[in-house]
Design a protein around this nucleic acid. Structure first.
Length: 714
DNA sequence: TTAGGGTTAG
C-alpha cells in the first residue's frame, strides 16, 4: 500500500515540474514579442531586462538583440559583466564562461569577481580557485569583493593550503580589515577545522558585526566545540548584541542540556525573533537531543506547514531515542499527508526498522526504496545492508550488497561486521581479503574484522589482522581496537594474556577496554580480575548500570552474596538505575514486548501453560536450569521459576503459538541474552524443529537442531 | 552605473 502511494507521489512531482517548465516557456515567448523587443534598444531597460530574465532561452534572445543593437559594442564590459552574471544565476555556467573568455584579456576586477562568484554559486569550487590563481598570474589585484567568494570556495573544498595563500593576499592587500573579508576568513578556517585561528581572527578584528559572531558560533558548532559556542553566545548577550536567526541556529546546534535549550528559547522570544520554520525544526532537534522528546513533539505539532525537514527530523529524533514505533507512525502520517520522502527520511526510517529488528518491516521499506529513485543510492544501499543484518537475514543483506553498483569503505565494513555479528568469522575474513584487493580499509573496517574474529574465536587470525593494521595499512590502533583484542582473548579464556595486553597498551585503556575484560571475567568467573576491571570502570564510566550488574553477578555466582549486595547498594547510592530487560517479537506486522514475568498479553494464560509444557519437554531432553542466572537470594525452587519467566522464554513461546508451523522465530532482546535462556533455547529449537534467531545487545544467535551459531562462544 | 560575508535545518 505504502509503496503504491509513494510511487504515485513521485510521478505527481515529475508532472508538476513539467507543468512549471511549460509555463516558463510561455512567459519567454510573450517576453520576446516584437513590441517588447524594440524597448531593448534603450540601454537602461536592456540592463534591467537582463536582470529580470527568468529563463536561459529568453536571456540568449536578449543577448542576441544586444549584439545587434547600435548602442552597444561587443566589448562593452558593463553589459558583458551583467550578462555573465545573469547566465550564471540561471545556472548556465558554460554560457557565462564562454562570454567571460571572449573578454578575459580585460583586467577589470569586477568582471573577474563576477566569474569567480559564478563558479562558487554553481558549486564549481575548484574552477573558482583556478580562476583566482590565473588572475593572480596576470597580476590583477583582488579587491574586498574577491576574497569572500574565493574563501567560500576554499572552505567548501576544505582546502586550507589555498585558504592560507588567499589569507596572505588579503593581508598584503590590506583588505584583511574589511569586515566581510574577516567574516569569510573565520568561516573558511572553521570549515577547515581550525577553530583556534578563527578565535584569533575574531579577537584581532578591528570591526565586528552580527555575522562575525554567527561565523564564530558556526565554526564552534561545526567542530563540536559546544562549550565554547555557548560561552561566546553568553558573551554576545552580555555585550548587548542582538542575535539574529543564524546565530540562534548555530547556538541551538551547540546545546546539550534542557536548561540551556529553555534559555535560548527565551532569547528568541525576548528579541522578538520570528520563530520561522527552520528555527522550529532546529528547536525540535535540539530538545530531542537533550532527551526531551515531549518538547520536541510539542514543537513538531506546533509547526503549521510541516515541510520535509520537519517530518524527517521528527522521524530521526524518535529513531535516535530508540522509539521506533513512534518513528514509523510519524512516517505513516507523512505519507498520508502526501509529503514526498527523500533519502534522508529513509535513513531515519531504516534506523527505526533496524532497532525494531522487524524483518517484515525491513522488506516493506526496502521495497519502497527500490521504487523511489531517491538519489544518495550508496548511503541508502549500505543502510539497507545493515538493516537486513540487524533483522537477522544475512542472505538478504548479501544479496543487496552484491547488487550494489558502487561500494565504499563503509559498505564493505558493514557487510563484514554483519558476518561478524552472526558469528560467521570465516566469511568475514574472506570478504575482508576481497576488499583489500580493491579498497583501503579504515579504522572502522578493522573494528568489524577484529570483532568478527572475536565472536568466532579466530585468535591467530585476529592477531594477524591487529598486527597488520599499522604495518600494512598505516592505521594506528585506537582504544576500540584494543577493546576488540581484549574481548577476543578474554572470551577464549586467555584472561591473563588479556590483562598483560592491557598493561602493554601504548595508549591509556578506556572504558571499552576494561568493559571487555569485565565481560570475559563474567564468562570465566574470575573474581580477582573482575575487581581490577571494575575498579577502573567505576572511575571511567560510573554512570553505566551494566558494569555494576556484571560485577554483582560475578560475585553472586561465586557465592559471594555479601559482596554482590554491596555492589547493588553502591549502585543505588550513586543513583545508577538498572536497565529493565525486555524482549520483542513481531507477529503479523505487530510488535509485542515482553518483560520478565509479563502478564500483560491477552494470551497470558495460554502462554504460561504452553511454557510449562515446553519446559517439561526440554527437561526430558536433558535441559537443567542454570541457577547461576537467577541471582536473587531465594530458595532454589523459586529461583527456577524465576528463570522460567524470563522475557526471552515468554517471547519464544508466544512466537511458537502465533506463527506458522516450521517458520523461523525472530526475537530481539535489549540486553545480552541470559545464559540459562541460551541453553533452554537450544533445547527448544531441537524439540520444536524451529529455527530461532535471537538478536541481543551484542550479536546474533541462530538456534537450530539443538545448537547455536555462536558455538556457545559469547 | 554592477556585487559581498554567517545556516548543507535532517
Amino acid at each position: 500500500m505504502a509503496r503504491v502511494v509513494v510511487t504515485q507521489m513521485v510521478m505527481q512531482q515529475k508532472l508538476t515540474k513539467f507543468c512549471h517548465l511549460r509555463q516558463q516557456w510561455r512567459l519567454f515567448f510573450s517576453a520576446s514579442s516584437p513590441q517588447q523587443q524594440t524597448e531593448f534598444f534603450d540601454p537602461e531597460t536592456c540592463i534591467s531586462s537582463i536582470k529580470q530574465c527568468q529563463t536561459l532561452q529568453s536571456l540568449k534572445t536578449l543577448h542576441a538583440f544586444t549584439l545587434r543593437s547600435r548602442f552597444y559594442h561587443h566589448h562593452d564590459l558593463f553589459l558583458v559583466t551583467n550578462l555573465v552574471s545573469q547566465y550564471a544565476s540561471l545556472g548556465s555556467i558554460s554560457h557565462a564562461f564562454s562570454l567571460f573568455s571572449s573578454v578575459s584579456d580585460s583586467c577589470d576586477i569586477f568582471l573577474w569577481n563576477v566569474m569567480i562568484r559564478a563558479f562558487v554559486d554553481n558549486r564549481q569550487f575548484d574552477r573558482s580557485l583556478q580562476l583566482y590563481a590565473q588572475m593572480r598570474e596576470l597580476d590583477i589585484n583582488p579587491d574586498n569583493f574577491t576574497f569572500p567568494f574565493v574563501l567560500k570556495a576554499c572552505g567548501y573544498l576544505r582546502d586550507i593550503e589555498f585558504g592560507v595563500k588567499v589569507h596572505k593576499d588579503a593581508v598584503d592587500s590590506g583588505y584583511w580589515s574589511d569586515v566581510f573579508v574577516g567574516n569569510s576568513l573565520i568561516a573558511m578556517y572553521g570549515k577547515c577545522g581550525r577553530v583556534d585561528v578563527c578565535r584569533q581572527l575574531f579577537d584581532e578584528m578591528p570591526e565586528r558585526n552580527v555575522v562575525t559572531w554567527s561565523s564564530l558560533t558556526g565554526a564552534y558548532a561545526q567542530n563540536g566545540c559546544y562549550e565554547e559556542g555557548l560561552l561566546l553566545f553568553k558573551r554576545m548577550m552580555d555585550e548587548g548584541i542582538r542575535p539574529n536567526r543564524v546565530v540562534i541556529l548555530n547556538v541551538m546546534a551547540c546545546i546539550r542540556k534542557v536548561s540551556e535549550a529553555e534559555d535560548v528559547c527565551r532569547v528568541v522570544v525576548d528579541n522578538g525573533l520570528d520563530l520561522d520554520q527552520s528555527l522550529q525544526n532546529a528547536a525540535m532537534v535540539m530538545f530531542a537531543r537533550c532527551g526531551r522528546m515531549d518538547m520536541a513533539r510539542k514543537f513538531f505539532d506546533g509547526i503549521s506547514n510541516k515541510d520535509l525537514v520537519s517530518w524527517t527530523s521528527m522521524i530521526e529524533a524518535y529513531a535516535q531515542a530508540d522509539l521506533p514505533l513512534e518513528a514509523l507512525e510519524v512516517f505513516r502520517q507523512m505519507i498520508l499527508r502526501r509529503v514526498l520522502p527523500d533519502s534522508v527520511t529513509f535513513l531515519g526510517v531504516i534506523r527505526a526498522c533496524s532497532s525494531l529488528a522487524s524483518f517484515q518491516q525491513a522488506r516493506t521499506v526496502h521495497g519502497i526504496i527500490i521504487h523511489c529513485f531517491l538519489g544518495n543510492q550508496l548511503a541508502l544501499d549500505t543502510a539497507v545492508v545493515d538493516l537486513y543484518v540487524k533483522c537477522g537475514s544475512l542472505m538478504y543483506a548479501r544479496k543487496v550488497f552484491d547488487r550494489m553498483k558502487q561500494k565504499n569503505v563503509i559498505s564493505w565494513s558493514t557487510m563484514i561486521s554483519g558476518y561478524g555479528m552472526h558469528g560467521h568469522g570465516r566469511e568475514a575474513l574472506f570478504l575482508f581479503d576481497q576488499m583489500k584487493a580493491l579498497i583501503k580499509p579504515d579504522h572502522i573496517t578493522f573494528v568489524s574484522v577484529l570483532s568478527a574474529c572475536s565472536h568466532a574465536g579466530l585468535i591467530d587470525e585476529g592477531w594477524e589482522c591487529f598486527n597488520s593494521m599499522l604495518r600494512d595499512f598505516g592505521v594506528a590502533p585506537r582504544p576500540e581496537h584494543y577493546a576488540c583484542m581484549v574481548d577476543m582473548l578474554g572470551r577464549a579464556g586467555k584472561l591473563n594474556e588479556a590483562r598483560e595486553f592491557i598493561e602493554r597498551m601504548p595508549i591509556r585503556p578506556d572504558a571499552g577496554v576494561w568493559g571487555s575484560l569485565l565481560g570475559a571475567c563474567r564468562i570465566h568467573s574470575n573474581v580477582e580480575l573482575a575487581e581490577m576491571a571494575a575498579k577502573a570502570l567505576f572511575d571511567l564510566d560510573a554512570e553505566n548500570p551494566g558494569r555494576y550488574v556484571i560485577l554483582s553477578n560475578i560475585y553472586a555466582s561465586s557465592g559471594k552474596r555479601t559482596e554482590a549486595d554491596r555492589i547493588r547498594a553502591l549502585m543505588k547510592r550513586r543513583g545508577v538505575k538498572k536497565i529493565t530487560g525486555h524482549t520483542v517479537i513481531e507477529i503479523k506486522n505487530k510488535v509485542h514486548t515482553f518483560v520478565a514475568g509479563d502478564r500483560s498479553q491477552p494470551q497470558t494464560e495460554l502462554i504460561y501453560s504452553e511454557l510449562a509444557k515446553l519446559m517439561d519437554r526440554i527437561r526430558r531432553e536433558g535441559y537443567t536450569p542454570d541457577l547461576n542466572f537467577a541471582l536473587h537470594d531465594v530458595e532454589e525452587e523459586t529461583k527456577e521459576k524465576m528463570l522460567y519467566v524470563h522475557s526471552e522464554k515468554l517471547a519464544i513461546v508466544f512466537g511458537l503459538l502465533n506463527s506458522g508451523p516450521g517458520s523461523a522465530i525472530r526475537i530481539k532482546k535489549n540486553l545480552r541474552v541470559c545464559g540459562d535462556c541460551h541453553t533452554a533455547t537450544k533445547f527448544i529449537s531441537k524439540v520444536t524443529g524451529r529455527e530461532i534467531i535471537v538478536r541481543d545487545a551484542h550479536r546474533f544467535h541462530h538456534f537450530k537442531d539443538g545448537t547455536c551459531s555462536c558455538g556457545d562462544y559469547w
